[in-house]
Design a binder for these strands. Structure first.
Length: 406
RNA sequence: GGAGGGGUUCCCGAGUGGCCAAAGGGGGCAGACUGUAAAUCUGUUGUCUACGACUUCGAUGGUUCAAAUCCAUCUCCCUCCA
């Protein structure tokens, strides 16, 4: 049986490791409990977290036990890593609600049956902790001098770092220690931006418990341009269908840069590596085949096979011509509602295609709008009530929207 | 606590009495070219019942024919000193 570390490395899911040889050996001989922390700062996870979920899934398939840690306690503080500004503080209620909705998303990728994976919330042990007790127990083991040299604080030292945030690292380190005692958790994984926080925890265990503890990070999902992946005009690319529809999600991956195809296939899907290599080696227009596979596979993992098929069908109908349009994003209007908003500009706003009439006006004047495949250039165009009961508005080349009369 | 500097449109950043809906860049959107890619070029980027009108420059009041620009108070941020 292959060592999971080899699998992860092969797929580009390893960035830095401590005591690599020891860890390799450990993972090869026993089932290891490991954890990854997620801060519940929103009610849904996004693509950044998805990489972490894939890592956990690979580990679980190899027989190890993932612990998904919800940062109900640490979210109260806010991680300064990679942020140039201080985060907004969330209320206790907001955090609790976020934890609830995120839990469901994990179940899609991980198997929680029979204790094969655990989910814990660090609020359970951090929030009731006494300050002085904590300082004596944990704080004594940290050197401020060393903490300040950590990469994650460096840029913040120039812009300002509050004492609140400075404590984040210590709290996260304590989490690892706690899980080590409670669940024999020996490894903490995370995005590479978490490296210093993770090290702090592993060091703490080694120092206080005299036991081995490991850290392993995976690279952040970046585009070939070095930008964070998963940004859309409306913000992040979310995993919940309420925030990002499966169709939109599918389209995102269908449209990635050629240069990013290989990375995405290996990091975000379970497709065997030789197939990944074959697909990403395709040239010119052919690489679109690889993008179709990528989009389908990722959508399937996140939203399920049915939704992936629907998204694919909608795409074929729109871009391939003909076919079933049922899955195209749409808005239902009564005939009365339609007549009230029959002006093309109003109709587009009603469908969420544009934010204002002004935006729509520009779009129309620049030739970016088609109604039922007919280019409209008159901003005052009034759309006639369609006899067929529906019509298709197209904004630019890629955005399609159906209007259905109830 | 003391001294100084600052909050401008999605972001960065010009503007210090009328010519300012506000330079420039980034980002976004659209057009051309393409492969639903990238790069490039062009246009556009406050709102509206749109050749005109209305609302914006941290907040509230004031001076003025006229304020993003001047004054007062408040508020938030940054730097230096303690």
């Amino acid at each position: 049986m292959t060592n999971v570390l080899d699998t992860l490395k092969e797929r580009g899911l390893v960035k830095q490791i401590t005591f690599e040889e020891d860890l390799y050996e450990l993972l090869g001989k026993e089932s290891v409990s490991f954890y990854i922390g997620f801060d519940p700062t929103a009610d849904s996870l996004h693509v950044g977290h998805y990489v972490a979920m894939m890592v956990m899934a690979h580990m679980q398939r190899a027989g190890h036990r993932p612990i998904a840690l919800m940062g109900g306690g640490t979210a109260m503080v806010g991680d300064p890593s990679g942020k140039s500004d201080m985060r907004k503080m969330l209320t206790v209620d907001e955090i609790a609600a976020n934890v609830e909705s995120i839990k469901k998303q994990f179940a899609k990728v991980l198997d929680f049956s029979e204790g094969k994976a655990l989910m814990v919330n660090n609020g359970d042990w951090l929030l009731e902790k006494k300050y002085v007790e904590f300082l004596r127990e944990v704080g004594a083991n940290f050197s401020v001098n060393r903490m300040l040299t950590a990469e994650c604080y460096k840029q913040r030292l120039e812009k300002g770092l509050s004492f609140l945030e400075f404590n984040y690292m210590i709290m996260q380190a304590y989490d690892f220690l706690h899980l080590n005692k409670e669940y024999d958790c020996k490894l903490e994984m995370g995005g590479d931006d978490q490296w210093s926080n993770i090290l702090a925890g592993a060091d703490l265990i080694r120092r206080k418990e005299q036991k081995p503890a490991f850290a392993c990070t995976f690279p952040l999902l970046l585009t070939a341009q070095g930008k964070k992946m998963g940004k859309t005009e409306s913000g992040a690319l979310w995993l919940s269908p309420e925030r990002t529809s499966p169709y939109e999600f599918y389209q995102y991956w269908r449209n990635v840069d050629d240069a990013d195809v290989e990375n995405c296939l290996s990091m975000l899907t379970f497709i065997p590596m030789d197939e990944v290599k074959r697909l990403s080696a395709l040239k010119d227009a052919q690489i679109n085949e690889a993008k179709k596979v990528l989009a389908f596979e990722v959508t399937k993992l996140v939203h399920g096979e049915d939704e992936a098929k629907k998204a694919e069908a909608a795409t074929n109908a729109l871009f391939g011509g003909g076919g079933n349009m049922d899955e195209t994003p749409s808005t239902e209007l009564t005939a009365a509602e339609f007549n009230e908003n029959a002006g093309l500009l109003q109709l587009m706003v009603k469908c969420g295609l544009t934010k204002s009439n002004g935006e729509g006006r520009r779009l129309v004047q620049q030739g970016g709008v088609r109604v039922d495949d007919e280019k409209i250039t008159d901003a005052n165009y009034v759309v006639p009530l369609p006899e067929s009961g529906e019509l298709l508005i197209r904004k630019g080349k890629k955005v399609f929207h159906r209007v259905v009369i109830k």
